[in-house]
Write a protein that binds this DNA or RNA. Structure first.
Length: 847
DNA sequence: ATCTACGACTAA
DNA sequence: TAGTCGTAGATG
């Protein structure tokens, strides 16, 4: 906080030449405009663009927000309120970031407040909570009003607190054990027993280490000698002292004592008792002190040799990339799975750092594993920051501040790492650039981190490298058009060859009665063979749970979710029926509630059933499952990967999770249990998604010298897409797909904006969607608007859904104009009284 | 998002 | 008629 007057700064200007400053701030709310506040004269020098300030918004709320602009224009139509407090004396949001955030709000049709909300770790947003304090003039003895028991309870609690301490509303609620405490507080205020105030505080708290050291007067041989003598009768304390001296060589180096050692290391040692330590502290032998430490301890300097050698192909690719960067800002590195792209990235990062700029390395959530982080840490040491969604808020703030301070020059992170406060980026790497998890869908901003990264690179003059084994069709198109440089790696690193891919016709197998549950004889046989050879197997099934549907064999009754238009999935482990959209769950039924029949059977299958079947058919195999359900716990994912890596498990059954970035040397077989459900998906990206998924899973097979095998089970092997997968020919796939896109007017030729209309009532949802369609058609023309249409799952969390697809010309000016038209159309709908409860959402470049 | 003012509606 | 409920409208 920089509220205090700074006496070292020049004397305040005289009233005559004082300027009146106003600040436009970004409130962390979904409001379309910035709000203007007045800067108090005496704080004119404290205004920092990109710094946080506290303001009063409305009658009740104090909020922390970001200063976006400072100017002298007094607002004409209203009296600006004063800024209450300045939190930062340096920006927490850099100028290039503000520019980027503005672009995001514009492009993705959301508000700046929504962008800020997504961008800032919530510990940087200040929390404002009301607190109550004992009224100084109040005395219980002279009190004229009778007090209720609850009121007494609160006053008691306030009385035991230290001077000037206060209770938060939350604490009052906990104290009384009820949520409805506002009446009690109101009554106490009326009786002038308490008063209320707002308190805003930084939520970030530094990590504090409890340490101990020898009291300074013992730090010489003579006094230590005496100390030993006095402790001879106290063996426990002597043990502690010995341990301390062993860890902190006070004899050799007196200064070593100043740093002391961690208290926990003393108290948690097996033979030392905490009470002995505490006694020593109490008697003044040891002194305890706090040390603020980073949550990311400084690694020892890089251990890996900085100049590891790239293969010939890798070197060539790297040089080609650098060559392209000479004239182009964006390069696509198209390298088959296992080609060794990471080494190239590391080499490029090193080069960029030598030039003095910052580097951002983006990875999709599931690919950002300990494997890759450890590898980078070894090369870049403490210069590397990691930004992961599993991180606590405090950890995120430390990364944020570390980027601001320059401590972290390289950051490896997931989607939201594009929000970090870089101001001098020289290189951005977006690995697995085709990944749909780069697109945020649910809360606004509905952004694609790949596109944001490209724009950020553009703003900061950084070069951007997109990497993938299966580039997005849009990306490859840009490369073909010459807008991006294109570099290809067609061979795997080392001896490893591309895996051999085979299709298995499940329809034929079913007719021949050679299917065992969902396993063909071939797949089962191959699994057994691999296990016999002590090799490992990955099985992919794109559906979690035991069975997606449960049905009564007699009357056809199917349990459905009460909030969504989906059938409930059966989860055997918990013996529950679950909705995968809203989390609703019920115990599994044994008797049909409709006809009373006992013949309630599961239909279809998920990972849990595959795991189950396999355990029965191959009891000698050690099977592990990896999906959303088994990785919910904090370290479960690491645990499963670790077990598989150490070969404690032979077979890994999983959903999409097993397709991404995992690199196991001993996997020689990958099985796709049911390819059909992946292909038959009702949208224009279905084929692309399927192709990517098949190639990515296949890529898990046969690394480090072994040739792998991939078995794909399908009821329809004639599908064109399999041909491209088997021949491992991306270009063939791309040529086919780009033709389709051109023909049907989809990206990259047209731009898509998807409108979603939601309403609790089905009829009103449909009406609102029709109304919006009309408004859109009026503004954009009949051909640009498709729908409305109910999606396959037409109701989620009690909201009915209608979708409208808008296709637009890609030209920049057209697009900008069209977005304004769309916003106008939405406003027209909101003006309609009957649609007041409807929600209208625009999703730019949906995935 | 969240609060307020205002009108409508219900309980006595 | 007071108290409760729901919603349009503003927030600097």
């Amino acid at each position: 906080m920089s509220l205090a007057l700074d006496f070292t700064s020049p004397a305040p200007a005289s009233a005559a030449d004082r300027v009146t400053l106003f600040a436009d701030v970004i409130l962390p709310l979904p409001l379309p405009r910035l709000y203007t506040y007045r800067v108090p004269y005496e704080l004119n020098d404290n205004v920092v663009i990109g710094g946080r300030v506290i303001v009063q918004f409305g009658a009740k709320k104090t909020l922390s927000c970001i200063v976006a602009a400072v100017h002298e224009q007094a607002p004409k139509d209203y009296q600006a309120k004063y800024i209450l407090e300045f939190i930062d004396d340096a920006p927490v949001v850099t100028q290039p970031q503000l520019k980027l955030f503005r672009w995001m709000a514009d492009y993705y049709m959301c508000t700046l407040g929504e962008v800020i909300n997504a961008a800032l770790p919530s510990a940087l947003k200040l929390s404002s909570e009301s607190r109550i304090q004992l009224h100084p003039a109040f005395s219980r003895e002279e009190n004229e009003y009778p007090l209720t028991a609850q009121e007494e309870q609160i006053l008691d609690a306030l009385g035991t607190l230290e001077e000037s301490k206060a209770l938060t509303f939350t604490e009052v609620g906990e104290l009384l054990g009820v949520a409805s405490f506002h009446k009690v507080i109101k009554s106490l205020m009326h009786k002038e027993a308490i008063f209320l105030f707002e308190h805003t505080a930084d939520k970030y708290s530094p990590k504090v280490l409890k340490k101990v050291r020898l009291a300074h007067h013992f730090v010489n041989e003579a006094s230590l000698e005496m100390l030993f003598n006095t402790l001879t009768s106290k063996p426990k304390q002597l043990d502690v002292l010995m341990k301390y001296l062993q860890r902190v060589p006070v004899y050799q180096n007196e200064h070593a004592n100043h740093a002391g050692m961690e208290k926990a290391a003393l108290t948690s040692s097996p033979h030392l008792s905490p009470s002995a330590v505490n006694t020593l502290i109490k008697n003044g032998v040891l002194e305890q002190f706090d040390q603020i430490v980073s949550r990311f301890p400084l690694e020892d300097e890089p251990t890996a040799q900085l100049h590891f050698t790239l293969s010939e192909a890798q070197t060539a690719a790297r040089d080609e990339i650098l060559n392209h960067f000479g004239e182009k800002d964006i390069v696509l590195l198209h390298g088959v799975t296992g080609a060794g792209k990471t080494e190239i990235y590391i080499d490029l990062i090193r080069k960029a750092l030598e030039g003095g700029g910052q580097v951002l390395y983006l990875l999709p959530e599931i690919a950002l594993t300990a494997q890759i982080v450890t590898r980078l840490l070894r090369v870049f040491g403490s210069r590397l920051g990691v930004y992961h969604s599993k991180f606590s808020d405090n950890e995120r703030v430390e990364v944020w501040n570390g980027v601001l301070s320059g401590r972290f020059q390289v950051v490896i992170g997931v989607r939201s790492a594009v929000f970090l406060p870089f101001d001098d980026l020289s290189l951005i790497i977006v690995d697995e650039e085709h990944e749909s998890s780069y697109k945020q869908y649910d809360p606004a901003p509905r952004y694609n981190a790949r596109e944001v990264a490209l724009m950020m690179g553009n703003f900061q003059g950084a070069k951007t490298l997109l990497g993938s084994a299966t580039p997005a069709v849009e990306t490859y198109y840009q490369a073909q058009q010459g807008r991006y440089g294109l570099v290809s790696l067609t061979k795997r690193f080392g001896e490893a060859g591309m895996p051999e891919i085979e299709l298995i016709d499940t329809r034929k197998q079913r007719e021949a009665k050679t299917m065992h549950n969902h396993f063909s004889a071939e797949l089962l046989g191959e699994i057994e063979r691999k296990l016999g050879a002590k090799e490992q197997v990955i099985l992919f099934q794109n559906r979690r749970g035991y069975a997606p549907v449960v049905a009564c064999q007699d009357c056809g009754w199917i349990p459905k979710c009460t909030n969504c238009a989906v059938s409930l999935s059966y989860h055997k482990h918990s013996h529950e029926l679950r909705c995968h959209y809203c989390g609703y769950h019920d115990p599994m039924v044994s008797k049909c509630p409709c006809c009373g029949s006992r013949a309630v059977k599961t239909v279809g299958f998920g990972t849990e059933k595959i795991e189950d079947d396999l355990k029965i058919m191959l009891p000698q195999a050690n099977v592990q499952r990896m999906d959303l359900d088994t990785t919910r716990a904090k370290n479960a994912y690491q645990q499963i990967i670790g077990d598989f890596e150490k070969q404690n498990t032979n077979v890994l059954v999983g959903t999409q999770m097993v397709t991404k970035g995992l690199d196991f040397a001993n996997v020689s077989l990958v099985g796709i249990i049911n390819a059909d459900s992946i292909i038959h998906y009702p949208d224009f990206r279905a084929h692309e998604r399927a192709y990517q998924m098949f190639v990515q899973v296949s890529g898990r097979a046969g690394r480090k010298g072994k040739k792998g095998k991939v078995l794909i089970q399908t009821a329809d092997p004639q599908q064109v897409i399999f041909d491209k997968v088997i021949r491992n020919d991306y270009l063939e796939f791309y040529n086919y797909e780009i033709m389709q896109r051109r023909e049907h007017g989809y990206p990259p030729f047209m731009r898509v904006i998807k409108m979603t209309v939601k309403h609790m009532e089905q009829g009103l949802c449909e009406q609102a969607a029709i109304f919006l369609t009309q408004e859109l058609v009026e503004r954009l023309g009949r051909t640009a608007v498709l729908g409305p249409e109910a999606p396959y799952i037409f109701r989620i969390r009690n909201f009915f859904i209608q979708e409208i697809t808008i296709k637009l010309d890609r030209a920049h000016t057209v697009l900008k104009h069209a977005k304004q038209q769309i916003l106008d159309a939405i406003d027209a709908c909101k003006d309609q009284k009957e649609f007041k409860q409807a929600r209208f959402v625009a999703d730019v470049d949906p995935m």
